[in-house]
């Protein structure tokens, strides 16, 4: 094979792969704009009404706010637990460090649907904890492994002697952490926040059983909506969500080279 035909073959393969991976999004964007009351592709006529309708559906609004709150506060809580844990795992020769690591990573290994069911049955039902609180805790736990992993890896290259230097210059241990460690892992913490936010926001299985009257995360609400209605608004909403994720990732990549933390 000569070089130019090899190059061509290269791009053909990549083109097909990328079409398979990305093409569906383009289809969704257009399907959401179809001027029909049912899902159609290619779109029959173009309209923005489905895109606008999304914002007027009451349950979408409520579930969007719930998902937003879960993603923001769940991730913040996970960072509150995860940053000290990541720090301790990196800095101290802890007995049972491996156990701590495994336990904290457990939420990644255990499929979300099982966690949701277990929490419903053994937390919500017996203790009367509200579903919202259970959701919050489940999302926190779900994001925790990512928080620990991403923050750990950004802390990994931070040498301990920097903190010792700070202490010898008069810092308390806590000041050494806030003045020296934190400024240097800021990027990692931000990356962990974004990754946690996206993970939590897109999460379905954990929230599947943890829903009640008026308490539904957005993806669950979409699943419920598409079972009864077949109009293009779910396509429109999907497209909007895709844009939101892309915008977040794009800004993150520009600001801090997000991809090196993932």
């Amino acid at each position: 094979m000569n070089t130019s035909s090899r190059l061509l073959a290269n791009w053909v393969i990549l083109g097909l792969t990328l079409t398979f991976l990305i093409g569906p999004f383009l289809i969704i964007i257009l399907a959401g704009a179809s001027d029909t009351s049912y899902l159609a592709f290619p779109p029959e006529g173009l309209t923005l009404r489905w895109y606008l309708k999304v914002f007027t559906v009451e349950s979408f609004r409520a579930s969007f706010l719930l998902s937003m709150a879960l993603a923001v506060f769940g991730t913040l809580a996970a960072l509150l637990l995860g940053v000290p844990a990541a720090y301790a795992l990196n800095r101290y020769a802890l007995p049972g460090a491996e156990t701590v690591r495994t336990v904290v990573a457990a939420p990644i290994i255990v499929p979300g649907i099982i966690v949701g069911l277990a929490l419903l049955r053994y937390l919500v039902v017996p203790t009367g904890v509200t579903v919202t609180l259970a959701l919050f805790m489940a999302h926190t736990a779900l994001v925790l492994p990512y928080a620990v992993r991403v923050v750990s890896s950004s802390m990994h290259n931070l040498r301990a002697d920097m903190e010792e230097a700070a202490v010898l210059l008069g810092c308390s241990r806590f000041q050494a952490f806030t003045k020296v460690v934190l400024p240097n892992i800021r990027g990692g913490v931000l990356a962990a926040f974004i990754l946690g936010f996206v993970t939590s926001f897109n999460q379905v299985p954990v929230s599947l059983f943890l829903s009640g009257p008026g308490v539904r995360t957005l993806p669950i609400d979409m699943l419920a909506y598409m079972e009864i209605t077949f109009d293009p608004s779910v396509a429109a909403l999907s497209a909007l969500l895709a844009f939101m994720s892309l915008a977040i990732v794009f800004v993150a990549e520009r600001l801090l080279g997000f991809s090196r933390y993932v």
Partner: peptide, 28 residues
């Protein structure tokens, strides 16, 4: 250690990467 008034120059220098030279020296 932070109350002993002792200086230490580390093998790795342990400079603070997020601060410029002035702020590194002014840190203490």
């Amino acid at each position: 250690a932070n109350k002993r008034g002792i200086g230490l120059v580390f093998q790795s220098y342990a400079l603070f990467p997020h601060l410029n030279a002035f702020e590194n020296v002014a840190f203490g």
